[in-house]
């Protein structure tokens, strides 16, 4: 067997996996996006139909056109991208010092500290969000504490605000930021910082000129790992966010479950996916090209 064939064989399994669990479902979703809503189950008309004794393909572009026309959807997209970007940035600001501290901690402390970062995953996500409701609501723990301390005189509206939503997203996605950052920081050669100091760079300049640029791949990975799921996030804005936070996840949910408009929901999902995949693919291609150089 030639080397090329053996390589193909090794690649076959992941390719098969991608085909079955990613490409096929996406193809189904995409096809529904071009269907027409109809009564029944599933609530859309098939794309291939017998018309006058001939099999014809009927594509419906109205769903996609609606997305472009109705600013309601465009606004939801833009808001989602903004919320996801801000959340990823917040995770970066909180996560970077954490990752740096863990990477610089004595070796025997690193694994326990990393476990602490991942520990929340061992509890149900919904339970943890509900706990935040308990903390943030008007009669909640935080307001109670602030009232008791005399900092405020009346309860603050914390729950169902943008603040609560960002807090929830940052809290939930933080490990996805910390882990790749840690991975890129821990493998940096400590001698580089010695060399920078030796050549006259005070600690803050060593950080800006050595540590930060070398951790860029970790920053990008962490940012994407938070940003991508945060764009489609439904539960946190729904449970913690205000009514104004019409994110794409909530719109999708409404179209799919309440309006039972599967084609429109599918169109929404397909556009979201393409909007995310294309820039990332472009970025990957550029990054890989730079590494080859």
């Amino acid at each position: 067997m030639s080397a090329a064939r053996r390589r193909l064989l090794v690649l076959l399994l992941p390719l098969l996996w991608m085909a079955v669990f990613f490409l096929a479902p996406f193809a189904i979703v995409l096809s529904i996006a071009f269907a027409e809503a109809a009564e029944g189950l599933p609530p859309y008309a098939p794309l291939l139909r017998w018309v006058d004794g001939a099999l014809t393909l009927q594509l419906n572009f109205q769903n996609l056109a609606l997305l472009a026309e109705d600013s309601y959807y465009l606004d939801a997209y833009l808001l989602s991208l903004r919320v996801a970007a801000i959340s990823a940035l917040l995770c970066l600001l909180v996560g970077y010092p954490m990752a740096l501290a863990i990477a610089r901690a004595p070796e025997r402390w690193r694994v326990p500290l990393l476990l602490l970062v991942i520990l929340p995953f061992w509890t149900s996500f919904l339970l943890r969000i509900t706990a935040w409701i308990g903390i943030l609501q008007d009669q909640g723990w935080l307001n109670g504490l602030l009232l008791a301390l005399g900092v405020i005189e009346a309860p603050l509206q914390l729950l169902y605000t943008e603040f609560a939503m960002y807090l929830g997203i940052t809290y939930c996605y933080l490990p996805f930021m910390v882990l790749p950052l840690y991975a890129s920081l821990v493998k940096q050669d400590p001698a580089l910082l010695d060399a920078a100091a030796d050549l006259g760079a005070p600690p803050w300049r060593s950080f800006l000129t050595i540590t930060l640029p070398l951790s860029l791949p970790g920053i990008v990975a962490g940012f994407l790992l938070v940003f991508i799921p945060a764009v489609g996030e439904f539960v946190i804005p729904e449970l913690l966010g205000g009514p104004g936070a019409q994110l794409i996840g909530r719109v999708l949910w409404t179209e799919f479950f309440q309006n039972r408009d599967w084609p429109l929901a599918s169109a929404l999902a397909s556009v979201l996916l393409l909007a995310l995949v294309l820039p990332i693919a472009l970025f990957q291609w550029r990054f890989a090209g730079e590494r080859r150089r």
Binding site: D189, A191, A196, A197, L214
Partner: peptide, 20 residues
């Protein structure tokens, strides 16, 4: 005198060249 203010420079064992 902290290392970054000493008139002393070092050639490191692993060279510690900045890879970026």
């Amino acid at each position: 005198v902290p290392p970054y203010r000493r008139p002393v420079n070092m050639m490191f064992q692993s060279y510690a060249l900045f890879p970026h």
